[in-house]
Amino acid sequence: MKRNLFVFLLLSCLTLGAVDVQAQRHRRMHAPSAMVELRLSDDKFAILYNKVKNTSFDDRKMDLIEVASLGAFYSCEQCATMMSIFSFGDKKLAALRLMAPRIVDPHRAYIIFDQLSFQSEKDEAARIIGGCRR
């Protein structure tokens, strides 16, 4: 009887330890601080933002965002700031399409939605961001 109890307690401890290790690994991989480190620093983002803002034509602005997105990650706040350069919803959504696959904190997408005026645009933005997470 004591031996069975000992074996049961030993197996329980090992199982709990394995679950705890997996939980710790998951928390480390999905920690907000780890994700924030991936995004462009504020200084580098300011340089990109100013280059895009000072470019004359929307097509050229989109080209700059596209090229920058090849090697950069963004926060939702940075994405919303970049979208604010554009006056019309279709251009804002076009910028979002380029940046969305590189967003590190999609749980804060409400910041992006605030940049859009119409519910249809917000729905489209949600589809864009959601489509990148699959």
Rank of each mutant, 00 (worst) to 15 (best):
H30K: 08
C76Y: 01
M1W: 07
S75G: 07
D42W: 04
N50I: 01
V52H: 01
F88H: 10
A100W: 04
V7K: 07
K61Q: 08
G130W: 06
R60H: 13
R127T: 08
E77I: 09
V67T: 14
L96I: 06
P106D: 03
I103L: 07
G131L: 11
D43F: 09
I112N: 03
Y49A: 09
C79A: 13
D123M: 13
H107C: 08
G71F: 12
P32K: 04
C13I: 14
K2E: 12
L9C: 11
R133P: 00
D58F: 09
R60L: 10
K2W: 09
S12K: 09
Q119I: 13
S41C: 04
K51D: 13
L11S: 14
A31T: 04
L9Y: 05
I103R: 01
D90S: 14
L98F: 10
Q24G: 14
V19D: 06
Y110M: 14
R133T: 07
C132V: 15
L10G: 06
S87N: 10
S117M: 11
L98Q: 02
G17F: 10
M1T: 09
A68W: 00
A80I: 01
L40Q: 04
A72L: 04
D123K: 12
M99P: 01
A125K: 03
T55P: 05
V19Q: 13
C76K: 00
A95G: 08
V19A: 15
G130P: 02
P32G: 12
H26N: 08
L96Y: 00
L96A: 00
Q24L: 14
G131H: 05
A23V: 14
D105Y: 03
A23Y: 11
F88A: 11
I103K: 03
L38M: 07
F57M: 15
I111V: 15
R108C: 08
P101S: 06
I85Q: 00
V7Q: 09
A125H: 00
H30F: 05
R127I: 06
A72G: 04
F57G: 12
I111F: 10
R60I: 09
